[in-house]
Design a protein around this nucleic acid. Sequence first.
RNA 1: GGCGCGUUCGUCUAGCGGUCCAGGACACCGGCCUCUCACGUCGGUAACACGGGUUCGAGUCCCGUACGCGCUACCA
Length: 497
Amino acid sequence: MTMVRVRFAPSPTGFVHVGGLRTALYNYLFARRNNGVFVLRIEDTDRSRYVEGAVENLLSVLDWAGLTPDEGPQQGGKYGPYLQSERLDIYKHYADRLVQQGFAYYAFDTPEEIETARQKSPDPRTFKYDASTRSLMRNSLTLSEEEVRRLLAQKVPYVIRLKVPENRIFVITDLIRGEVSFHSSQVDDQVLIKSDGYPTYHLANVVDDHLMEISHIIRGEEWLSSVPKHLYLYECFGWEPPLMAHLPLIFNPDGSKMSKRDIQSLSLMPSGKVDPDVQSYIQAGYEREAILNYIALLGWSSGDDREVFTLKELEQIFSLDRVNKSPAIFDLAKLKHLNQQHINRMEPERLAAELRSLAENAGWAIEDENYFMQVVKLFQPRLHMRNDFLTLSRYFFEEPTEYDAETKAKRWKEDSGKLVLEFLSEIIKLTVFDKESLEKTLLQTAERCGVPAAKIIHPTRLAVTGMGIGPGLYEILELLGKEKVINRLKRAVGILG
RNA sequence: GGCGCGUUCGUCUAGCGGUCCAGGACACCGGCCUCUCACGUCGGUAACACGGGUUCGAGUCCCGUACGCGCUACCA
């Protein structure tokens, strides 16, 4: 059994796509599950699409996700370099080898000439540079040897094209889709080396996957159609192709492809579209584990009824044969649900640490660690997003300056001020200020005044927190402490009447 | 247009010929819990694209149609 080696091979286009992150995740999980190696290779062979900082961004997102490569531009490895732009001589070497062996040829046609040929062909829509047309073009198959030598010597721009044979059937056994076959008549003489000397994806990919000893290719379905070219390349080189698994695509809620252009700024789901940029979700405050968990579920399921998984758990149970074939639609509601689930299951200490840095970044001064911890515990079960903590728990750190108008209208009645003062006069006497005695005191006060407990509870909550929602009142009061509670009640009654 | 892939509740999915008048999750609706909001819990609405085969029996296998998506670049 040979070593499992997989790769994530993104091209740095400026941002990491949700689908790209899932591809990285699946590769990572497959490697971990099979004690294999996870390779990161940067496919930066398109100079026209070069984006400043794209590689750094990619690296930082992977790092954030915890999908650390075993080999890659940062960690190195014996199969490097891992940036294709640093491997140009390798591709050239292999392309030349194909030309020498007659599997590929030089083509000198300019884009304009090809366009002209297309227009003059019987059906411009189906025109291809292939076995049926290459004899009409300017290439080393139609030109004399001397002419070819002369053109090369004169540095006339050229590309190297793969000479795809006629009447062949290429069959792959995809790990997810089963057998898929293609007739060679539908594949064109793919450019291998562009006129700028850079390789195309197809050449670089095949060469690198072989040289880096990749055992399984796990990538998006958009690549399925180009597999025959790749298979033929492996054949020409005399190499064994890796096993392949083509993943279903991820779409917008309206069924369209997730595209960066669909999104204006950060607003999610403007019109049946969803932001494809992973960075947006990070910035929006989603939990790392929740995002990974969610995208893992887009195209894969565990087989039992469990859906909430940590990365570590996924590493144990992920398998390619539970990946399905049909495309998935990205659903923010489910992401949010999983986000809440992950916050809920987090170790309180860890959540506290996360929330503390969040709060401190927002300018909060946290003096009492233990107090902060108690507040966090109160809110953990009711946080859907960690950012909500800032608005929901603020009254624990500063006195409310405003009182929610809606709650005031609904809960603060004629007698509320009086009842709150009654309650206040009782709790002032308390020597033990815990939730049990507070509850007992409140209930007794209510009974003494002949009103339902709710008539005191709600106004008190509003007075102390400024809000109508939140954790249990007695827990809030206990945690705030006697002094603050007394001050706030007095102040609120003065303001609310 | 050509080629390829896909099609189970609104969404993610389970299902690998009978145990499926189709199960789970999100969302939605209702109940319980309860001082509120959540959490939790109980229940409800809701799907095998269509048409032919094969078979004693099809969501499950085959063919066709429709629809969707991908590829069809000197982009990946």
